[in-house]
């Protein structure tokens, strides 16, 4: 549903403008290592963009630039027209990043993990916070986990708690870093459904970094493929069903060749 102009608050149903993201000629070096090389694209308000690519291709680093955790070596990243790294942007635009590891606060219970943002920004009284937290837990089918510590949760539960924590922030822009990694196929499908339904119901602009081909083909409005720091493909998922570029085709449907294994070719 790209182009939807408003994000609906899942708790109050109040609509606020959805935000767009623009990445212009983004380059990032870590010392001599060039991680991102002149990457440019734009994400429309309310769109789901799935970024794919091999491990180490710079996907997570790109996500960190969008949320302002990394500064570009060259180029510019803007969210709703404002510099992504600026503190003002974080105050104006509600952005949430679901980390690959979950990044839950290990010393806090699930309830307190979700309540932290609301308490720190004094967005509701304790009764209001309770209502919002329990609602978010219910959306993610996590009602029984409120008192548990993150260490007591399974991998899938941690991912869902991380999504619930992001949801409590009522974000206009939601970023997911490998939301289905290390999950079984059913849980992966469930997470994909959650991401899609959050966009459908609340029109949140969404960027997902993932290796999950099924997720990309089923929920993305557009898919980008990063390879060695460069964006080599950006288009609708339908174009990925029969990709013209052999590199893209090999990445999406790698053939297992026991006669000529890849690692042997790399050695030579």
């Amino acid at each position: 549903m790209p182009g939807t102009s408003h994000t609906r608050n899942p708790f109050t149903q109040v609509e606020t403008p959805a935000v767009g993201v623009s990445v212009e000629h983004l380059t990032k070096d870590f010392g001599r290592l060039k991680v991102l090389k002149d990457v440019s694209f734009a994400v429309q308000p309310g769109e789901i963009l799935v970024l794919m690519g091999p491990s180490g291709s710079g996907k997570s680093v790109l996500l960190k630039h969008i949320v302002g955790l990394e500064l570009p070596t060259a180029g510019r990243v803007t969210v709703d027209g404002h510099d992504a790294a600026s503190e003002v942007t974080r105050e104006r635009v509600r952005m949430a990043l679901v980390f690959q590891s979950g990044a839950l606060f290990n010393s806090l219970s699930v309830y307190d993990n979700l309540a932290l943002y609301l308490r720190e920004h004094r967005l509701a009284d304790e009764a209001g916070i309770r209502q919002k937290v329990m609602h978010a837990l219910k959306i993610l089918s996590l009602e029984g986990t409120a008192k548990k510590l993150p260490a007591d949760l399974s991998g899938g539960m941690k991912k869902r708690v991380a999504i619930a924590r992001a949801l409590v922030m009522e974000p206009q822009l939601m970023l997911y870093d490998e939301p289905t990694s290390e999950l079984d196929p059913v849980m992966s499908a469930t997470i994909s459904e959650i991401i899609a339904s959050l966009r459908e119901e609340y029109h949140v602009t969404t960027i997902v970094v993932s290796h999950d081909r099924d997720l990309a083909l089923n929920i993305a409005d557009r898919v980008g493929i990063l390879m060695d720091g460069k964006l080599i493909f950006l288009g609708p998922p339908s174009e990925l069903k029969q990709p013209k570029d052999p590199i893209v085709a090999d990445f999406l449907t790698p053939k297992i060749d026991l006669q000529h294994p890849r690692f042997k070719q790399l050695e030579t």
């Binding site: 960190k64 974080r90 980390f99 839950l104 932290l116």
Partner: peptide, 8 residues
């Protein structure tokens, strides 16, 4: 990093 993204 999670705190920073939450503007805390």
């Amino acid at each position: 990093d999670a705190l920073v993204t939450m503007n805390i």
